[in-house]
C-alpha cells in the first residue's frame, strides 16, 4: 500500500517542487516513513545534453571506486554532492552525489545500451555505490523517510521541473533502504508504483534474458526495465507497452475485431504481463503514463487543468494543489492515461 502522484505540463512550463510535496503529503494515510521519493524532469537545463547520474554512496571508498570506474568509461563533465539540508527525521546514511557525463564517441550509436550497462555494472559490482537515476535533464531524489521529509532533505523546492512524480511507501515485501524507495529509474524512465507485482518472478526472468539485472529485491524495478525494453529497444508505443503489461482479457480479445493483434501481443509478450494489484505512474522526458492492473485493484484518479495532466491515488491529493479542475476522471483499467509534451521529441 502506497500513495503516488504526478503531473506534467504539456507545454513544458516548469514549477518548483512545492506542489508535488503537497500532493505527496495529502496521502500520508497510505504510507509510513520507510521510503519516499521524487522524480523531476527538466531540472538540469545547463546540462541537458549530458546524462545526469544520481548516486547514493555508503562511504568515501565507494565514491572513489565509482569515480575510477566512470573515468575509464565516460567523460565526466562535472560532479558534485547533491545539496541536502539536515533533517532530523532522516539519518544521513548515504552521501548523495551526481555526475554529469558524456558517452565517448565510439559508443554514441549504442549510447543508451552502453549507459544501461554502466548502471548495471556499478550497481552490481561496486559495493556501497548505487545509481538511483541515469537520465538526461532529470533526476530522482529518494530516501528512507516521509516524502515531505525527503523533500526537505533534498531541498526539492529549489528545483524546477515540467514533470514531477512522488511516492510514499509502505514497504511490505522488501526492507526500507534509500535505494529501495520509489521512483525507480533507468535512463529517463522513472516509475512509481502502488501495489504488488505478483508476476515478479516471471517478469524478472524474462528481463534477465534480455540483459537486465534485477538486483533491487523489489518488484517495481521490473516496470522501469520493461518500459525500456519495450519502448526503447523494441520500438513499441507507450500505448502498446501498456496493453502488453496490462492486456485485455481473452474473453474480450476473442470477440474483438483486432483479435489477431491482441493475440499476437499476448502470445509474444506473455512474460511481460504484470499481474497483481497495481497503479503505476511512469515518466520519461516526453510523457507521463499512468495505468492500472487489469481488474483495477489499486486506486488511480486523473485530472486536467489547462495543459497540465495530473494523476494520483486520491482525488484529494490533486485538489489540494488545484481545487478547480477542468476535468476529473477515474481511468478504466486497460485505458492508460498518457500525456505527452506538445513538442515531444524536441528540446
Amino acid at each position: 500500500m502506497c500513495g503516488l502522484g504526478g503531473f506534467i505540463n504539456k507545454d513544458g512550463k516548469k514549477v518548483d517542487g512545492t506542489a508535488i510535496t503537497t500532493m505527496g503529503g495529502m496521502m500520508e494515510a497510505r504510507y509510513d516513513e520507510r521510503g519516499g521519493g521524487f522524480a523531476a524532469y527538466g531540472i538540469y537545463p545547463n546540462h541537458s545534453d549530458q546524462y545526469a547520474l544520481h548516486l547514493l554512496f555508503d562511504d568515501e571508498r565507494a565514491r572513489e571506486a565509482t569515480e575510477e570506474y566512470l573515468k575509464d568509461r565516460v567523460n565526466i563533465v562535472k560532479d558534485e554532492c547533491i545539496p541536502t539540508a539536515s533533517v532530523k527525521e532522516i539519518a544521513p546514511v548515504h552521501v548523495p552525489w551526481r555526475y554529469f557525463i558524456d558517452v565517448p564517441e565510439d559508443f554514441e550509436a549504442v549510447e543508451a545500451d552502453f549507459l544501461v550497462d554502466t548502471v548495471m555494472k556499478i550497481n552490481g559490482s561496486i559495493p556501497g555505490a548505487f545509481v538511483i537515476s541515469s537520465g538526461k535533464n532529470m533526476g530522482v531524489f529518494k530516501a528512507t523517510g516521509l516524502p515531505r521529509n525527503v523533500a526537505a532533505l533534498f531541498k526539492i523546492s529549489d528545483y524546477k521541473a515540467y514533470a514531477w512524480s512522488v511516492h510514499g511507501r509502505f514497504p511490505t515485501n522488501t526492507q526500507g533502504w534509500w535505494g529501495g524507495a520509489h521512483p525507480f529509474n533507468i535512463l529517463d524512465w522513472s516509475v512509481v508504483h502502488n501495489g504488488e507485482i505478483s508476476s515478479y518472478g516471471t517478469n524478472k526472468r524474462y528481463l534477465e534474458m534480455h540483459g537486465y539485472e534485477c538486483k533491487l529485491r523489489t518488484d517495481t524495478e521490473v516496470v522501469a526495465y520493461l518500459f525500456d525494453l519495450l519502448v526503447r529497444k523494441h520500438g513499441l508505443s507507450a500505448e502498446v507497452a501498456c496493453s502488453i503489461m496490462s492486456p485485455p482479457f481473452w474473453k474480450n480479445i476473442d470477440r474483438s475485431d483486432k483479435r489477431e493483434y491482441y493475440e499476437a501481443l499476448r502470445m509474444t509478450y506473455a512474460p511481460a504481463m504484470l499481474n497483481g494489484p497495481f497503479a503505476i505512474i511512469v515518466n520519461n522526458k516526453d510523457s507521463m503514463i499512468a495505468f492500472n492492473d487489469r481488474i483495477k485493484l489499486r486506486p488511480l484518479i486523473a485530472a486536467e487543468l489547462g495543459e497540465t495532466t495530473f494523476v494520483a491515488s486520491e482525488e484529494a491529493a490533486i485538489r489540494e494543489i488545484e481545487p478547480e479542475l477542468d476535468r476529473v476522471w477515474a481511468p478504466r483499467a486497460g485505458s492508460p492515461v498518457i500525456a505527452r509534451l506538445n513538442n515531444a521529441g524536441g528540446k
Binding site: 515478479y200 518472478g201 516471471t202 524478472k204 526472468r205 506473455a270 512474460p271 504481463m273 499481474n275
Partner: peptide
C-alpha cells in the same frame, strides 16, 4: 502466464 517460470512463488 504470470505463474510460468515464476520460481519466486
Amino acid at each position: 502466464e504470470s505463474l510460468r517460470g515464476n520460481r519466486d512463488r
